[in-house]
Design a protein around this nucleic acid. Structure first.
Lengths: 156, 156
DNA sequence: TATTGTTATACTCTATAACTATA
DNA sequence: TATAGTTATAGAGTATAACAATA
């Protein structure tokens, strides 16, 4: 089994804020590495690369064409061909002809693929929940709401 | 120039919490993809892979041996050889003989390397600050403190 | 002609195993 | 013998360019 991608920051903390606060940039940067590391750990535990994990994750509630998949993953269509090839070879996804356009195909999860990505998701959820156990219920709710607002604002 | 790694979640939101709150797991997951995408964008803008970015980031305040570098980056030593080879070829790092142990070498940034990683860091800082502009000063401070506490708790 | 997907090719990144030099 | 680093090799992941089939 491969080793997990590490959670070391590419951006070091500047400590203008005192020991109890890294500043918004470094706090979020470090939190990010922490959480990505957690996800990578569970992916690795299921013998999945991050690329495969992202592919299977995206397919949980979609049956996109290769073109759409390329857009969703922000990859070149030729990269998606290889990614799907390898996932199909492992039995996690299938290609199926598209109904309307005979040029295009649709990619969907197999039950094995769904099973493996669900396991990654479940482990990830447990670990993130555990990591935030140091906060009270109210604080956790606050963090959740604030993070949501940032995500929403950027998406908008 | 390469295209940035995308910020699409491998974990989809479950909406038990209403539209204003994704729940702690999904909120943090999505925030993570957002921030990683930002870092990847600025790395790409400097024509750096994430692996090279991580290498240069780690070297900002260290001159480690190859062995130490492998531990810091959580890579096999043979992977580090290649990573440093390519960085050295581009003039970003240099190998220097280690004083005490003639088996080992120390890796350090060149001024070109420092310049390029500082540019990535600067752009990243601006974008993260911008992304949190939707929050008030008090809210930003709160987010920063909460994130810091989670990071510290996990590190401990 | 334009679009969808694949193939050919090249490079980065990563690991394992075998090797060299030093301790 | 054990450790530090490199080399050889193999495979995943990615992009660009050229191609075939369909629209």
């Amino acid at each position: 089994m491969k080793v997990m991608t590490q959670a070391s920051p590419a951006t070091q903390p500047r400590l203008e804020q005192g020991d109890d606060d890294l500043g918004i940039v470094d706090a979020l940067a470090q939190l990010t590495f922490l959480i990505q590391g957690t996800l990578a750990k569970h992916a690795t535990a299921q013998d999945l690369s991050m690329a495969q994990t992202r592919l299977l994750g995206v397919l949980r509630d979609r049956e996109p064409t290769m073109q759409e998949l390329a857009r969703l993953l922000d990859l070149d269509k030729s990269s998606v061909t290889g990614l799907v090839d390898r996932a199909e070879r492992r039995g996690f996804v299938r290609r199926a002809p598209s109904a309307d356009d005979r040029r295009s195909i649709r990619v969907h999860l197999t039950s094995a693929g769904r099973k493996v990505i669900e396991r990654v998701g479940a482990g990830f959820r447990v670990d993130v929940a555990t990591a935030t156990q140091c906060l009270s219920v109210v604080e956790r709710k606050r963090l959740s709401t604030l993070a949501t607002r940032v995500v929403m604002a950027v998406a908008a």
